[in-house]
Design a protein around this nucleic acid. Structure first.
Lengths: 189, 189
DNA sequence: CCACATATGTTGATTAATAAACAAAATAGA
DNA sequence: TCTATTTTGTTTATTAATCAACATATGTGG
């Protein structure tokens, strides 16, 4: 692919993310973004239809990074569910500024929605019903686990991460193991 | 000016400077530069005729920054010769890696030559002969001061800056004041 | 409410950057 | 020394980015 496209999109995304961290989304203008990205305004429009498209792609990029980051590395299963979960919380910790902004913003519902959707999908893929009391509806259980996990993460982030990432990983794993089924709720297959 | 040109040239210069710091000049290839700058090889050739041209423009940029940095700020003469000189040594300190590479390189004579030429020009502009014993040839005196100053700076840089920048500024100023004429040898008018 | 500024989205002509291919020169490496 | 590989410098067609100029929309302060 033409490297100009990658460079321009990267510059625009970086500028947008930077602005997101220092002011409210509603106050951000395309002009500002183009200026900070050192790119012609028209270039922004050639890659994104409008600022909402930009926001959505920004969310998508960050969430992709989040879920990629949670994949147990290597095919040899060398990294356990615990380590994987620990890495996830560490990643969240490092990007806490961004995620808390996203979670606390009143105008941005797209982030929460997308996060929830991805979490549901992930849990759906991971949830093993073997040995589970069969009078529990799987669909409902998926929603249950997804919301539970997001709730913990959201609380942790928006409350300035009162516990260490290791401790959080332990606690969440312990909660999940009570059902002995979902060991890597944040990972995809 | 078209911002694409500025961006490309900057990326190429940055890549080149970076490579200069980690390997010998003779080992640096245009391919490497283009790759590190994330720019097409042809783009390098559209701005620089060859790697020597690139080197010369690199030297020119750095020396311009050096001499710019030494200008007494503001029209109100708020910064004295001493402060100005002190700033100069601080700047050299911060960029010591680059300057020592340039001064120690056996293959690069262009840097020393250019530095010397700029220094001579600067001293020529600054040297006030009033009160100087008139049997001293001004031309020779310029050469004398220029070489003296460069010698001190070169020794300081190549010997890993054994004294603080403040101390060096004091010492050099003290040496210059013995002639009570050259107070800002590194500045241009 | 109105004037004025700023932001949005679109257009068209122009230019710089790109990829790909090439021959020639330089540089290992065996 | 001969061979293979890399680097150099140039060319060509293509494409993305640029600037400038629009009309329209959205605020904002007086």
């Amino acid at each position: 692919m033409d490297r100009r496209i990658e460079k321009s999109k990267q510059a625009i995304m970086d500028a947008f993310t930077k602005l997101m961290l220092e002011k409210d989304f509603e106050k951000i203008t395309i002009n500002e973004i183009a200026e900070l990205a050192n790119v012609n305004r028209g270039t922004v429009y050639s890659h994104y239809v409008d600022i909402f498209d930009l926001l959505n792609q920004c969310i998508e990029n960050h969430l992709n990074k989040l879920f990629e980051n949670c994949q147990p590395r290597g095919n040899d299963n060398s990294i356990s569910g615990k380590d994987s979960l620990c890495k996830t919380f560490k990643y969240l910790e490092q990007n806490a500024f961004f995620y808390s902004k996203m979670l606390m913003s009143k105008s941005i519902t797209a982030f929460r929605n997308r996060l929830h959707a991805l979490m549901v999908k992930s849990v759906e893929e991971q949830l093993d019903m073997n040995g589970i009391n069969t009078d529990v509806n799987r669909e409902i259980m998926v929603q249950y686990f997804a919301s539970a996990t997001i709730g913990v993460v959201e609380w942790w982030i928006t409350n300035s991460m009162p516990y260490s990432s290791e401790y959080m990983a332990e606690q969440l794993l312990s909660l999940m193991e009570r059902y002995q089924n979902v060991t890597e709720p944040l990972t995809r297959r």
